[in-house]
Design a protein around this nucleic acid. Sequence first.
DNA 1: AAAGATATACGAATTGTTTCGTAGAAGTCA
DNA 2: TGACTTCTACGAAACAATTCGTATATCTTT
Lengths: 123, 123
Amino acid sequence: MKPTESELEILQVLWANGPSTVRQVNEQLSQAKEVGYTTTLKLMQIMHEKGLLSRTEEGRYHIYQALIGEAETQQHLLDRFVDTAFRGSAMKLVMQALGNSKATPQELAALQRLIDNLNPENN
Amino acid sequence: MKPTESELEILQVLWANGPSTVRQVNEQLSQAKEVGYTTTLKLMQIMHEKGLLSRTEEGRYHIYQALIGEAETQQHLLDRFVDTAFRGSAMKLVMQALGNSKATPQELAALQRLIDNLNPENN
DNA sequence: AAAGATATACGAATTGTTTCGTAGAAGTCA
DNA sequence: TGACTTCTACGAAACAATTCGTATATCTTT
């Protein structure tokens, strides 16, 4: 349930592009860094074994698909990260992330709405 | 400059308690999980080699101290995490972390002030 | 059919991290 | 002093993640 960093990169591609072949995924990954075809292949095979990806055979191709959702996985990773890096304080993380981000007015407005929703005292 | 997970645990102890001996650190770590003394020793030696910890000899003891700051390290890890897990969107991370946290009214108020500060249009 | 391109499978090297056993030095105590 | 405890040093095993070479099967093209 906890993908490694390389696995996460592959998941990102599959989440963004939907079901894909190894070559398609590898092509995407290659844009960011050099990575051999068989390396990607091997990783995706392992992920399939682990149950992270499904695989359907389409002629001689294999088409892979993420079996775990993006938001769900992010939440999982986030929980872990808050624990290990921020000793469990989600608030500290939020403040720090926010303080260093260049948020657009739209984003800030969305955030504002979320806060209003969270705060029962607010009106 | 990017501590591993185990190294981070040791840093947490040093940040929380200040300069410490291996035994002191190991005792802290032992509260959370079983870990041998020499394991902690070895890790701290490696961290010293890497320049993550300073070391002063005090009789036959070695006293270790974190050479990197907590906030600075958290920022670094956070940047990385936003990239790998949230494809660079700090906002998405913030919203998700916030949505799933039980923030106290005080925390929400602090956050509100931060947002007001960030938003130039706000008054 | 033969040559070339492109798939998957898989073993294994490489690299990085964590864990621990053992040895020797240095203190403590009866 | 001798037994005991408690340090540090260090090699190496154990484990995990990543990378890649090579073998073999399957298309495609001429």
